[in-house]
Amino acid sequence: MSTASKKSTRHATGSGMERFNALRPGTNIAYSAMFILLAFLCVIPVIFVVIISFSSEASIGKVGYSFVPAEWSTEAYQYVWHLRNSRGIPTVVMAFFTSIGITLVGTVLGLILISTMGYVLSRRSFKLRGFYTTLIFIPMIFNGGLLSTYVVNTQLLGLKNTYWALILPLACSSFYVIIMRTFFQTTVPDEIIESGRVDGASQLRIFAQLVLPISLPALATIALFLTFAYWNDWYQASLYIESSKHDLFPLQYVLVNIEKNIQYLANNDMAMSANSTALPSETMRMAIVVIAVVPIMFSYPFFQKYFISGLTIGAVKG
């Protein structure tokens, strides 16, 4: 159904009723004012940090972190650019691309793992279906805990200090598998799969060429869940990446370690140029926060609707 026709029918049947049932003007204004306030409350810290990152270090010393800095400056970003690793690549640029790489690889891998399992579980005729349902259900209510997970990942799988440690543990989750299965069950008609089988296609072909193309909305939802989870992850890095392995740091983990990094740079900087002024360490970390937040800020409003549809699919229990 097109949005236009939906709107017009609702208008025809509901407009009088809606007007009759609407909030009183006073209440409406009070509600609206409250939500505007809440919205500001959610956005203002981001604006605040952006302002701080464009303040000069001297201004921080004078008026503290303030919405109206005494002096504007881009020195924080210039210094961030000069924060280099041993190979002369800016630490933040390196970390930025590490984050992007991990996010891309993880999202693709996660999509493969989640959608294949979701598809297999949605096939009612599959002999192992009951067993698989149990297999993905148990981890939802029981897990091995941090220590045994850590020991298995480092000592058995050898993931310590590798990119895979940041990718593999987050790639799949029972919750996403169930969302996918529910989607396949409710929106992919059995006739399509039957027709593929009549034509002699293998299950892999049916899945890849018939089912996936009509499942793009669900795939987009899962992809977004995964993308944001990978981009925001610092916890895996704090577990599996030693703090001396700077080149493996994703952006979020640079933020965790930034105090040490700035200290390191300050020492180096002193050695290199005697007349250098103090590093803008206060504004620098806020600049890196801004670099980590900006991609999210500008992308999530466009993807929000997929999130919401994902939440509603997820709410359907199975």
Binding site: I136, N143, T149, V152
Partner: peptide, 13 residues
């Protein structure tokens, strides 16, 4: 994946 990242740690308990 489930065996490596969910079930092995359970035995680690």
């Amino acid at each position: 994946w489930y065996i490596l990242f969910c079930y092995l740690p359970m035995f680690g308990l």
